[in-house]
């Protein structure tokens, strides 16, 4: 039964060696290993969190950038459309002005023409009157002996002249 009876000497040596091993490993061995692994784990967790945070930040920055881009493109298209409208407006107003101008000029020209015509008519009437007077004088000089006939001729001429003048 020596298998089942612990030997005192071996108990002593076992206690000694186990205590020495325990002392050495519990102080300088395992705490360092487990501590390092814990430290590494904490570092990895922290890094993951930081990566998450960074990712979120990048996402928000991208979102911002996209917003800014959207805004800019909206603004530019707005500006473009407003510029087109403006240009159209300018063109329209220019055209209107040109039309008005042209109309005014036309009007002025017409009135000028009318005035000129009046003037020309006046001059012509004067000339005609003078001419007719001269003609009359000549006729009078030549055919004043036949009174009655002459009178009727003169009257007819005057009437014609007057009729001409009135018809205008």
């Amino acid at each position: 039964m020596s298998l089942l009876t612990p030997d005192l000497g071996l108990l002593f040596w076992m206690l000694l060696s186990f205590l020495l091993v325990f002392g050495a490993l519990a102080k300088f061995g395992f705490p360092i290993i487990t501590g390092m692994v814990d430290k590494r784990r904490a570092h990895i967790t922290e890094s993951l969190l930081e990566a998450d945070k960074a990712r979120l930040r990048i996402e928000s920055v991208e979102e911002d950038a996209r917003k800014i881009m959207d805004e800019a493109s909206k603004r530019s298209s707005e500006m473009l459309s407003s510029a087109v409208a403006e240009s159209q407006r300018i063109v329209e107003s220019a055209r209107e002005r040109a039309e008005a101008d042209a109309a005014a000029r036309m009007e002025a020209a017409k009135s000028q023409i009318a005035i000129e015509k009046e003037k020309a008519l006046g001059e012509m009437r004067t000339t005609v009157a003078l001419l007719s007077v001269e003609v009359a004088e000549k006729i009078l000089h030549s055919k004043l002996e036949d009174g009655a006939e002459n009178n009727s001729l003169v009257n007819r001429l005057i009437d014609e002249v007057e009729a001409n003048g009135q018809s205008r």
Binding site: D7, L8, G9, W13, M14, S17, F18
Partner: peptide
């Protein structure tokens, strides 16, 4: 009283 450094003690060491 036997505290001999036996084979098992040496093995343990």
């Amino acid at each position: 009283l036997d505290l001999s450094f036996t084979k098992n003690a040496a093995g343990l060491m």
